[in-house]
Each structure stands twice: as structure tokens, then as C-alpha cells.
Design a protein around this nucleic acid. Structure first.
Length: 576
RNA sequence: GCGUCUGUAGCUCAGUGGAUAGAGCGUUGGACUCCGACUCCAAAGGCCGCAGGUUCAAAUCCUGUCAGACGCACCA
């Protein structure tokens, strides 16, 4: 037939089915054109799939109303279509509910934890660079965004058959270590740092910035220390390693709580010995210019400020390391895409060095993708380590977990595994909240919202999943896959099935747009549809066949919720 | 000054150029002798920042404008 089946990974592509029917009747258009014109009506009462005929109007030189009315009579009877209606220029298809429900539920029951999965990415490597906290700075709510988004993209690519490589590009190199060394020597003490950890490191870092306002020579000292680091000075490197060890210990505590891992922790320092070759290559390719004592790549032609490669004191910069890292990753992983999850504030930086890669003649420059996200503010003020204005992620997670534990103690005090479930839900609430909005939007952190678990929240979806699990436990019998779809005849049941049907498409959209929030919002929709059904209709009824049919629906919802939660990095506890 | 992003219900936000712009929170009023009330139902609440333009059709595309955020050489 046609070779464009891959536009959807959905095994039951209803648009495809309808496009093929219409192709026979609209000779001037391919089934692909028709497919792209089809849409889902805004209201179920209007139908399940619609063809707006306005565009056809010009081609067929008839009014849209006329086209719809003519087509409606030409559609042959089809067991999967209940009826077709022409309404003011729209051709509306109503699916045969019984066969649709049967198709969708059978698919989910068969696929289970693979429902929505695919192998379209087979053999393709995707490097995802996320989290990347700075050594010696605390892990705060702002860092969570990169971590949560990157982790979710990792799971999404994996579910679609790709081979993702999660890289934690630790901020473990750069001038801030010079500042830290100066600060440590001026105001720090070994004991205080060993006891206080990152908090103490941050304190002396903040003090450095306060003092540097009065005494700018401190900045010069800091730069000197960084130059020493790059030259391999033993004292500088020993302090650096010490700061790094302390920081990593605390970061790993947070990653354990979040249940997030990485395939590589190659940070900025890893590229230290790879930069000279890059600088050499840039010189050979005649891209470097000297300007005010520094070496730059001029990008005026591309309407961008120059990209700094080497400072006047001979040390390197962020861009230098990113270029070296990109080349290293291409050689090491042969990626199809290399994705950088960082704040939108860095957009120019990425555009600049992506252009440098292009100018170097690498045809894979367009495989480098910046995935920006908005900033987190606190009561209207930007979070900044330098001023000490931060909300520590660990504090947020602790509070969310404690609150969950309180609720469990109140409502379900005999729950086994209380502590672990409280962790899963508390952490879930925080991650879910972070992945709820389009990533580009700025977010204003609010304790009140973060700790409110009602409505569109992680605990709501997790609770719904646990409720479905509870029903299946109480049933005390496996769901018979030969359920009778005819018995699922109510609107609420059909609505749940329609939403289940959309899951694979949502995963595809989330991957294409690199936007985990598509899945987060989908889960809320599915949970809402399911809860409405749950309230309207008893499930554990006497009638065995009806009971089995409804449990088949419950089972499909449970699996889909679980798969979706997994894709955004949340656990799906069976009892809460 | 230049550039990028964002303006949708009181608040936080959805909304692939198509039909009557949707959720949640909050407010008000309802539903637990009933499968788990972290649930559900209902009501109120909108010149989709503003002005032009393109189109049969614009919250969505284009231009301008206003407001906010971010960025613009030795920080990352």
C-alpha cells in the first residue's frame, strides 16, 4: 500500500484507516494529504475524526458544505465505522465503538508495560547532556529542571527504541574554582568545610563575591589560581579534588532520592587535555582571530557576538570546553543527536559554538540541539548562588516526603513500606510539578503550590494508579483477555478508551518536541477520565462478564498510567 | 541600543490555522452505611496584552506596538 506508515507509531491508526477510505473518493489527493487534513473534533458529540472540507473547496470548485454532503453518501459501509455525518462543511466520522474498544483494550492488555513503546530508534545513539550541577555549589530548585527534563527525555528515547547516553557534564572546571581557592585561603577552614559540606563552600563563595565588590584584586587572584590549575599546580589541584569529592557526595544523595542515574560523569575537567588540539584545529582552519589579547572566532557575519576561545591570560572558557566535548562525543558515541538541556539564558552561547562547529566543517553541526527551559524565580527574585538566594532541592524533597508521610499516617497508617512510598510520592510531586508546564515558561517557586497534592499533581496520578491496582487486587482473578467489548457501552468508558488510544501519539509528540510536559498533561487527562468512570460505574459487580469487561478497562488504565509515570521519571506504587 | 523568549479566567497553566477557547488551584454549593474522598459533581469567572494584515477560517501565521524575563568578550 503506502510507505508512510511511520508518521505514527500507533498500531491502530484511525486517521490512517479513514485516510485510506477517503483516498478512494477524493482522487485529486493522496492518502497522505488527506491524513494531514484529518483532525480530532473538539467535542465527542461531533464525532471521533473529522475532515474539514474547506481546503478541498478550491480544488474541487464546490462549496465545503456541498463536498461534505456528497462525500457522506459515498463512504462505503465499514464495520469499524458506525456512521458518517456532514455538518456545515465538516465530514464527521463516528467510530464503531465496540470494535474500537476491543482493538484498543486488546492492544494494551497484550503490550502491557510495552504499550506505547516502539523500535523506531533502533541502533541510533542519542547523547543527552543534563543536570550538570556546578561543583561546590548547592543543588537547588533551579537545577532540578535540567535534571528532570533530561531524565524524562532519556526514558522517552529509550522507550522508543533509541540508545540514549545520559551525560552529567559536571561543572568541575573553570574560574569559579580560582575564586573558591582564594576564598578558602582567606576565610575558610578545613574543619568547617568537612562538617558543613557544600553549604560551607557556598558560604565562602558568597563571601568572596561580597569582598570582591570592595577589592577587585581578589578577582585577579582567582584568575591566577585557575591558570595554576590549568598548568597542573599540585596545591591547586589537590584543593580542587577535595571540593569535588565533597560536592559529589552530596549530589549523589540527591540523585538517589530522585532515583536518577547517568551513563557518564565526564565533566568539564575531563576535556582539559582535549582542548589544545581543538585550539590548534581552529587555528589551522583559520577561524581564530586575536582581539584585545584574547583569541576569538568572529561571528559578525552571522549577526552574533564573537565566540571567545582563549582568554588573554591563556586559559580556556566554557565554549572551548563545549566544542572539545562535542567533538569527543561525536567520536565516542557516533550520536544521531546530541541534546543539551540547559537554561534559556544560554541560548546565545549555544548558537555561537554550534556555528563554530559548522565553520569547522563538521556536517553534524545540525545534530546538536539546545533544549532550553525557563528560569525558576522565588517571590519574583531570581535564584542565584552568588547572593545565597536559593531554595535547596534537598529541603524541598524532605518537606514533600514528610508531608506525604503525614497524609499516609492519617489515611492509611498500616501501609507497609510507608517510608519508601512517601519518598516515591513526595519526590513524584516535585518532579511532576516541574514537568507540568511547557519547559520554556519561567516558573515562580511557591511552597504552597509545591506541597498542595490536590488536582493536577503527581500524587493525584499515582493515587489513581494505586486505586486501579486496588480494584484488580480485589478482583482476585486475572482479567480474561477475551472480554466482551459490547458491555462497555457508556460514554465514560468510551472516553477512557479514546484517551488510552492517544498514548503512543503523545509519546511521539513528546519526543519530537523534546517536551516531557506533553506526557505529564496526558496522564492528568487519563486519570481524570478514569476517575469519572470510576465514580459513575461500579466495577466489582456480580455479573461476571460485565465485571471482567470493566476490569479489562481498569487493567489497561493501570498499565498506561504506569508507563507514562515511568516516562517522566516517577514511580508507580501499587499501594499508597 | 540590538537579539531571543513569554503575555489566554482572580492565580498557575493547556490549547497540531478550523466547529461553542479548556483544565487545576482558589471561591461558593453539593456527593462518603457504597469498589480507597490525595476522589467526584455543579456554579461563578474570558475584548486570548493592543493595533493592523494574510486567510473561506487566527489565541494560533506576518508586521508593528506595549509589558515582563533573559542575553549581548575574557563567568558558566
Amino acid at each position: 500500500m503506502n510507505n508512510f506508515k511511520l508518521r505514527s507509531i500507533n498500531m491502530l491508526d484511525i486517521k490512517q484507516m479513514i485516510a485510506e477510505i477517503l483516498e478512494e473518493k477524493i482522487s485529486s489527493l493522496s492518502s497522505e494529504d488527506i491524513y494531514n487534513m484529518l483532525e480530532y473534533p473538539p467535542d465527542d458529540k461531533m464525532g471521533d475524526v473529522a475532515l474539514p472540507c474547506f481546503k478541498l473547496s478550491r480544488i474541487l470548485r464546490k462549496s465545503p458544505v456541498q463536498i461534505a454532503e456528497e462525500l457522506v453518501n459515498e463512504i462505503p459501509a465499514n464495520p469499524r465505522i458506525e456512521k458518517v455525518e456532514a455538518v456545515s462543511g465538516y465530514l464527521n466520522f463516528f467510530l464503531d465503538k465496540v470494535s474500537f474498544i476491543e482493538d484498543v483494550l486488546s492492544t494494551v492488555l497484550k503490550e502491557q508495560d510495552r504499550y506505547g513503546a516502539s523500535n523506531i530508534g533502533k541502533g541510533k545513539n542519542i547523547v543527552i547532556d543534563y543536570s550538570a550541577p556546578n561543583i561546590a555549589k548547592p543543588f537547588h530548585i533551579g537545577h532540578l529542571r535540567s535534571t528532570a527534563i533530561g531524565n524524562s527525555l532519556y526514558k522517552i528515547f529509550k522507550f522508543l527504541g533509541y540508545n540514549p547516553v545520559g551525560v552529567n557534564h559536571l561543572g568541575d572546571w573553570g574560574t569559579q574554582f580560582g575564586k573558591l581557592i582564594v576564598a578558602y585561603k582567606e576565610w575558610g577552614s578545613k574543619e568547617a568545610i568537612e562538617n558543613g559540606g557544600i553549604k560551607e563552600l557556598m558560604a565562602i563563595y558568597v563571601k568572596f563575591h561580597e569582598e570582591a565588590e570592595k577589592d577587585p584584586s581578589l578577582e585577579d587572584q582567582a584568575r591566577e589560581w585557575f591558570v595554576k590549575m590549568e598548568k597542573g599546580d599540585p596545591e591547586a589541584l589537590e584543593l580542587w579534588q577535595w571540593f569535588k569529592d565533597i560536592s559529589l557526595k552530596e549530589f549523589n544523595k540527591v540523585y538517589d532520592l530522585l532515583d536518577i542515574t547517568f551513563d557518564s560523569y565526564a565533566g568539564e575537567s575531563f576535556y582539559e587535555d582535549k582542548m589544545p588540539a581543538v585550539i590548534e584545529e581552529l587555528k589551522e582552519k583559520n577561524l581564530l582571530t586575536e582581539s584585545e589579547g584574547a583569541l576569538i572566532v568572529d561571528l559578525e557575519e552571522y549577526n552574533m557576538p564573537p565566540c571567545l576561545i582563549v582568554k588573554k591570560d591563556g586559559s580556556t572558557l566554557y565554549a572551548t570546553r563545549d566544542i572539545a566535548a562535542a567533538i569527543y562525543r561525536k567520536n565516542t558515541y557516533d550520536f544521531e543527536k546530541c541534546i543539551y538541556v540547559t537554561g534559556a539564558a544560554q541560548s546565545l552561547h549555544f548558537n555561537q559554538w554550534f556555528k563554530v562547529i559548522e565553520l569547522m566543517g563538521y556536517d553534524w553541526h545540525d545534530q546538536l540541539i539546545h533544549v532550553p527551559f525557563g528560569i525558576v524565580s522565588l517571590g519574583g527574585e531570581k535564584l542565584a548562588t552568588r547572593t545565597g538566594k536559593v531554595v535547596l532541592l534537598e529541603d524541598i524533597l524532605d518537606q514533600a516526603i514528610n508531608k506525604t508521610l503525614e497524609i499516609i499516617n492519617q489515611k492509611n497508617p498500616n501501609l507497609e513500606n510507608k517510608e519508601e512510598v512517601a519518598r516515591q510520592m513526595g519526590v513524584g510531586a516535585v518532579i511532576f510539578s516541574d514537568l507540568s508546564n511547557n519547559r520554556i515558561k519561567d516558573v515562580s517557586f511557591s511552597w504552597e503550590e509545591m506541597l498542595n497534592f490536590d488536582g493536577e499533581t503527581g500524587p493525584y496520578v499515582q493515587y489513581t494508579h494505586a486505586r486501579a491496582c486496588s480494584l484488580l487486587r480485589r478482583a482476585e482473578k486475572e482479567v480474561d483477555p477475551n472480554f466482551d467489548a459490547k458491555l462497555l457501552s457508556t460514554y465514560e468508558e468510551f472516553k477512557v478508551v479514546k484517551t488510552l488510544y492517544l498514548f503512543p501519539d503523545k509519546i511521539m509528540a513528546a519526543m519530537k518536541e523534546l517536551e516531557p510536559s506533553i506526557i505529564t498533561r496526558y496522564l492528568v487527562d487519563l486519570a481524570q477520565d478514569f476517575n469519572r468512570f470510576y465514580h459513575e460505574h461500579p466495577i466489582l459487580v456480580e455479573d461476571d462478564t460485565l465485571r471482567n469487561a470493566r476490569l479489562a478497562l481498569v487493567s489497561a488504565v493501570r498499565d498506561t498510567l504506569k508507563n507514562g509515570l515511568q516516562l517522566i521519571g516517577l514511580s508507580a506504587p501499587e499501594r499508597v
